[in-house]
Amino acid sequence: MSKSLLIIEDNAQNLYMMRFLLEKKGFSVIEAVTGPEGIDKALRHRPLAILLDIQLPEIDGYTVAKELKKHDELKSIPIIAVTSYAMAGDREQILAAGATGYIEKPINPETFVEEIIQYLPK
């Protein structure tokens, strides 16, 4: 299996920060800035895990998570929600939509990669 991770995130700075941190730890990163692009790249690359922003233009993260889980070949890939929607109820909602884990923005550069690793298949 590849060591690549797919990041679906529309904010360029956030995308760059996550990419930088993950590449430092030896992961390779595939980028997508919209939901449909993310689904398309997930199907083509079968990443180790998908980091999914909830606030996306046009199609939000909840819908993207549900769409991803509809594909049999993607069902086993963990989805990790990355969001600043740090409010009660959001966690339940994104987990119900199919996410495995949940990381709150602002991300902590010191712990971010460790948090991601704990959600990866052993």
């Binding site: 956030n14 920060m17 941190l21 902590n108 550069p109 010191e110």
Partner: peptide, 14 residues
């Protein structure tokens, strides 16, 4: 306001 600020804090941390 928080979004760019998070970016500042994050990169400073890095």
């Amino acid at each position: 306001l928080r979004t760019p600020l998070n970016s500042i804090i994050g990169f400073t941390g890095i």
